[in-house]
Design a protein around this nucleic acid. Structure first.
Lengths: 202, 202
DNA sequence: TTGCAAAGCGGACCCAGGGTCCGTATCGTT
DNA sequence: AACGATACGGACCCTGGGTCCGCTTTGCAA
């Protein structure tokens, strides 16, 4: 019951800030080129409101990230196959990794901002924990596979934001190529042949 | 012939700075807890000398890193098997990855400092290029393996500093376990059984 | 030895950027 | 209408990377 509904201007400002940050991160090449002051200004709001709403820079980026991730999160937690919980484990591993890769391709700047948020390693964020737990659980149901925990980490590492950025941006690897390669890698790790494409477009 | 041999005090200071930085990074938990001023002070030297000697923070960290890496680099470029160039490709892949993992375990703080040096993604550093090229070349000689480039990236990603740090530090996974798991993962990726241990202790 | 550039030194200084303070404006409730 | 609570915003603080410049040291040469 510590719930105390926020004032209207507060929620409006919060929304404006999210939108502004989103726009700025999308527009600028490097995440650290966009400063907190920039975001506040873009939103037509004082800096203090920004910090009041999100705590600190990491909080803001996390909020953005979670918002963008929500559809996928829902699809994974309660949606139909191939992402939802009813999917057979093997197929789901492919679907999860593919969805994650597509998400990172579609949100390069934002994800880069989050993972490169300086100190806090990505492994401490709870959204990483979620993905890892999910993947690990799926892997554990695949017969003949050991080291589910480490394997999950390794597969997730193959979709790290800066790697994806490097491949997509610097080496100009096309999206479909990356998806195929990741699927093929996954198949080798799992000791299977790759399944056909499994997830919707981004 | 633009070579102009540096003065004695300059080289002494440079050495002192390297030593100081090394000590400080080793001593402190988080790399960003140690500031440039700290390092200069520890070395008994002015801040300007520090920047004159290494350009900027990244330059210093890179210098430290290269110094530490040199033995391995030599072993890889001109040493005997299993690291040297005469090794059969398949065995060499295992050896390279194991050596890299051990190196990162033995130099956690330093490597963390380098890879987490804020903006510059690790993929732009030329030492990454070297590892990747090396691994890719070895992979290309393994029959039936496609996507050598991507596979090399993925395997290297499994040894990323912050992942290693997370596993070794936070999850308390023992060193030998990690080595085994990495070898096992590699074997699955390559479609082989793991070879026996391949490299010296760190 | 002494002279004298050139190379190097160091700490005061600059600046950007994250985060806070506090007097003022707004909200929404009685 | 009025008043407490809530939020606003821009001036302000502080840390930390990086630079400036007057002074010292080095090393070559006379």
């Amino acid at each position: 019951m510590t719930e105390r509904k926020p004032r209207k201007d507060a929620v409006r400002n919060r929304a404006a800030l999210l939108a502004a940050a989103d726009a700025l991160f999308a527009r600028c090449e490097s995440p650290e080129a966009v400063t907190m002051a920039d975001i506040a200004t873009e939103a037509g709001v004082g800096k203090a409101s920004l910090f009041r709403a999100f705590g600190d820079r990491t909080g803001l980026i996390r909020a953005l990230y979670e918002a963008r991730l929500e559809p996928i999160r829902n699809a994974v937690e309660a949606g139909p196959p191939p992402l939802g919980p009813a999917t057979p484990p093997l197929q789901r591993v492919f679907a999860l990794l593919d969805a994650l890769l597509c998400f990172k391709l579609d949100n390069r700047h934002l994800v880069l901002a989050l993972e490169g948020t300086g100190s806090d390693s990505p492994y401490k964020a709870e959204h990483y924990e979620r993905w890892h737990a999910l993947l690990k659980a799926a892997l554990e149901q695949i017969p003949g596979l050991t080291d589910s925990g480490f394997t999950a980490h390794a597969l997730l590492a193959a979709t790290r934001a800066d790697l994806v950025e490097h491949l997509a941006g610097h080496e100009r690897v096309p999206r479909e190529t990356m998806r195929t390669q990741l699927a093929s890698l996954t198949a080798r790790v799992l000791g299977t042949r790759p399944l056909q494409d499994s997830v919707v477009e981004g």
